[in-house]
Amino acid sequence: MTVPRVVPALLAVLIGLGVLVGPVAPAAADDEGGTATLQQRLDEAATGYNNARAEAQASEKRRTALVSQIAVLEKRISALDAQVQELSAAAYRNGVPDAATAMANSRSLPDLIGNLGLVDTLSERRSQTLADLRQARRDLADTQKDVDAQLTKQRAAQRTMGRKRAAAEKALADAKVGGQPTGGFTDNADDHPAAAGPPARKAAPKPRRKPTAAPRRSDGTYGSEGCSQDDPTSDGCLTPRTLHALRQTRAAGFTHYVHCFRPASFGEHPKGRACDFAAAKSGFGGAATGDDRAYGNRLAAWFIANADRLGVLYVIWYRQIWLPGSGWRAYQSGSDPSAAHTNHVHLSVQ
């Protein structure tokens, strides 16, 4: 029996529409682990946390300055109060001088001019002192209100930080990649929590250069940036903040192979906001061990120590993820070295 030509054509159309290929596949995974949904939720939560933290810090800084200003105003009010009391006491003892009294007590024209000048001076001094005292008290009241307002803003930002931290941890739990608190990493070469295999050879940590802080907006937060700078590690682009982080990392002595931009359907890499820092000197290979692993430990620890200055969104290394506010958490995103992040440290920048 000959199959009509229309049947293959119809089958092709149905397959193209997904009618004959079964249920819709789950969210696609990145080649280094994670899903579009997870990365989007982590991006939003970490960005929200960092911005709220910057706002809280700005409010605290402003509040501290205002408290110092209050101390100055209180000292000034105390001094003005003393002056007013002194003038009032002098007026009570000697009477309040006036023009008529000055004329009566003057024996000559020069005396009259001098006495009238003294009356004016004393009167102006008393009036100015009272005016200064009233203004200082108004300034103090306004400053105290500003302190209260800054404290309200700070507490609101702290509540936002708590919500964003919880949102990031829930995203990890929903994605079933772990999320349990872990020990993280330090500059110690034998630091290897939550990972199999022998410890790396211990070596004395080297001092690292503190990075130059990335530019911030006037409110202390990091603004959104486009992929506008050439990526020196690829043919792609980077945001200015990511390029700054890359340069500062290299200046601190972390000079192993790095690759940043890459085309992808989701995540920070195609936005120019992420870099992968190989544990090995020449490129990505198998799971890092020995000195390579120690290098990754030091690099991950350095990123965390300078997260605020670099605008770090999150860091992934050796089956763990660091998120602002949450710290290091288990991150089981795959089994191969790239997905498990056992051959490179992933840095995402806000």
Score class of each variant (00 low, 15 high):
R138D: 10
T182Y: 01
K145T: 14
Q135V: 06
R125M: 06
V177C: 00
A100W: 12
Q150Y: 03
L116M: 06
A102W: 02
D139N: 12
A149G: 05
D120T: 05
T186D: 04
S108K: 07
Q128W: 03
G178A: 13
Q128V: 08
S127D: 12
G184H: 03
T152S: 08
S127P: 11
A100F: 10
M161N: 03
T152D: 07
G178Y: 13
G179P: 15
A203V: 10
A173L: 11
D139E: 07
M161T: 02
D111V: 06
A175L: 05
A136G: 03
G183A: 13
R134L: 14
G178R: 13
M161E: 10
K153F: 14
L118H: 10
K153W: 11
E124I: 07
L112N: 12
R201C: 02
K202N: 11
R126D: 15
D191F: 05
G162V: 06
A204E: 00
A171D: 04
T101I: 07
P181C: 13
A200C: 04
D120V: 03
Q150K: 04
R201G: 02
A204K: 00
G162E: 14
Q128C: 03
A104M: 12
T129S: 04
A168T: 01
N188E: 09
A156H: 04
V119L: 07
G179E: 14
M103P: 13
V177H: 01
D190N: 13
E169C: 12
T121E: 15
D98Q: 00
D191P: 06
R107M: 14
L133D: 11
F185M: 11
V177E: 00
G178W: 14
P97D: 00
R107K: 15
D174E: 13
A104L: 15
R138G: 04
S108T: 08
A102H: 04
T182C: 05
D148R: 06
F185V: 12
G114E: 14
K206L: 05
L151S: 04
A102M: 06
R138Q: 04
K164I: 01
D142H: 13
A157P: 12
A173N: 10
L133T: 10
V119A: 12
L116F: 00
Q154L: 10
A104P: 01
T129I: 08
A99Q: 13
T160I: 03
A157Y: 09
L122A: 02
R126P: 15
G162M: 07
A196W: 08
R163W: 03
P198G: 11
R134K: 10
D142N: 15
D190P: 09
A166Q: 07
F185G: 12
A149Y: 05
T143S: 08
T101S: 15
R125V: 02
E124A: 14
R208D: 10
P97H: 00
N105M: 11
P207A: 06
K164S: 02
